[in-house]
Design a protein around this nucleic acid. Structure first.
Length: 428
RNA sequence: GUGGACGUAGCUCAGUUGGUUAGAGCUUCGGAUUGUGAUUCCGGAGGUCGUGGGUUCGAGUCCCAUCGUCCACCCCA
């Protein structure tokens, strides 16, 4: 058993039984993104390590201890991407996508973080990412949030809690940060070890500590929303009003601080209690300084990422209906004349009945065996073509689900018969 | 990186205070007369008990290590 080569820790196979949920998610996502006017961009999985250090932040956990980094044969420092936003920004700058225009983009694929796997957390996981550039006004914040909301609704998953906060501008954040540190220093000896460490590295992160003693201290801490400057406050209020106008429910969470350094102003996160400890399904925010920081023209931006595995988990938990994917028809064939005749007929049926899912028996087997396979395949009908039928120019159509007796149909009539039975369009 | 639980057939599990050739259900394959499935009956296949050491006359059962899975912390989608 241990001799067998197995998947790398934290990197999972999506087996055929799970694939339909993934397909459904991506199909609905592509539709919704298109409906809002977002265009797809596809990116390499590997980028220069430098990109993530500059975009995500040098001292964040994601780049500090979770990146898969290596040197290629030419000595370049490269990393498997730990998130998608940095790559989208890099590509946009590189191809001049941000010069004097707005861009609405989406992107999806695997990302990699070296963490201990647990429920809803893997070393290779997948994100659906939406990003919009060149629009600084709060109406775009509302659009982005509404877009995610629409995706969940179209997919048929619910029970989320949308949390909202504003981090303001970098200046606001710096000023607040100083106040927070001042306050926390007074209780330093009562803080838990992690929070004490963060006090010097990333004090805002202390805010979402789960340690009870620390939480108690935080009760009296200065609140970030109280320190917003007038423009930031106005921006945030407009976002809230816009969401209310659209009937989107949200909860303000002054402690919501995202773990990536590039966020400014609006940040948001959808969580679900059905997921265990890793409860964030979708999270994002505004990052107005990022494009410039990576060498592009000053360009406001905002985006979010959805955790595909987590959303698929919810789809399964909430039993989201999935389209039938198995064969509708299983074609049994046996005999010297019948075998090639059946192969040809199968091609004809697939061509004339678009959408038909027909599985042609292969590998021989007695009729009994073939019918057993037909039943196991989940097909609704079996077609039976032996030498007797071949000689007569007919095919037996047999219901596998108790819908009437088998009947013999002339080959010439078969396409029309199947079209009617399966309610499929028929081409000439 | 830290902590806890767990690793027995493809799957879900049983396996008595350590005692002879390790079991069940499901799945799978074959058969129950010639070309008719899913029900029923009969039969077969499938495990060096995660791996490596150790204790013992004897280990799936005890000890150690290691790998892996799950859950939580940390962090995050």
């Amino acid at each position: 058993m241990s001799q067998k080569i197995q998947a790398v820790r934290g990197m999972n196979d999506v087996l055929p039984s799970d694939a339909p949920a993934w397909q459904r998610l991506h199909a609905v996502a592509a539709e919704v993104f298109a409906a809002y006017g977002y265009a797809e961009i596809r990116l390499p999985v590997v980028e220069r390590s430098e990109l993530f250090k500059r975009a995500v932040g040098e001292v964040t956990d994601v780049v500090e201890k979770e990146m898969y980094s290596f040197e290629d044969r030419g000595g370049e420092r490269l990393s498997l991407r730990p998130e998608l936003t940095a790559g989208v920004v890099r590509a946009g700058i590189e191809h001049g996508l941000f010069f004097n225009r707005q861009q609405r983009l989406w992107c999806s694929g695997p990302v990699f973080r070296y963490e201990r796997p647990q429920a809803g957390r893997y070393r290779q996981f997948h994100q659906l990412d939406v990003e919009a550039f060149g629009i600084a006004t709060p109406d775009l914040d509302v659009e982005i949030i509404a877009l995610a909301e629409a995706l969940f609704r179209r997919l048929g998953v619910g029970g989320f809690r949308l949390q909202l906060n504003s981090l303001g501008t970098p200046a606001v954040r710096a000023a607040y940060r100083a106040k927070l540190v001042d306050y926390l220093r007074r209780f330093e000896s009562s803080l838990d070890e992690d929070s004490r460490r963060r006090l010097s590295t990333n004090p805002l992160r202390v805010l979402d500590s789960k340690v009870p003693g620390t939480r108690a201290i935080l009760e009296g801490a200065p609140q970030l929303p109280d320190h917003l400057d007038a423009p930031s406050r106005a921006h945030f209020e407009t976002v809230q009003r816009g969401l209310s106008d659209l009937g989107i429910a949200y909860a303000l969470n002054p402690r919501l601080v995202r773990g990536l350094d590039y966020y400014t102003h609006t940040v948001f996160e959808w969580t679900s209690t059905a997921l265990g400890a890793q409860d964030a399904v979708c999270a994002g925010g505004r990052y107005d300084g990022l494009v410039e920081q990576l060498g592009g023209p000053p360009t406001p931006g905002i985006g979010f990422a959805i955790g595909v595995e987590r959303l698929v988990l919810l789809m399964r938990a909430q039993e989201v209906p999935l389209p039938e994917a198995g064969p509708q028809v299983y074609f049994c064939r046996f005999g010297e004349r019948a075998d090639p005749a059946a192969a040809q007929l199968a091609e004809t049926l697939r061509r004339r009945l678009p959408g038909l899912r027909l599985l042609l028996n292969a590998g021989g087997g007695a009729l009994k065996t073939q019918l057993r396979r037909a039943d196991a395949s989940g097909a609704r009908y079996a077609l039976i073509l032996g030498d007797d039928e071949a000689a007569a120019g007919r095919v037996q159509v047999k219901s596998l689900r108790g819908e009437g007796e088998p009947r013999s149909v002339a080959v010439s009539e078969l396409p029309a018969q199947l079209a009617e039975l399966l309610e499929l369009p028929l081409l000439s």
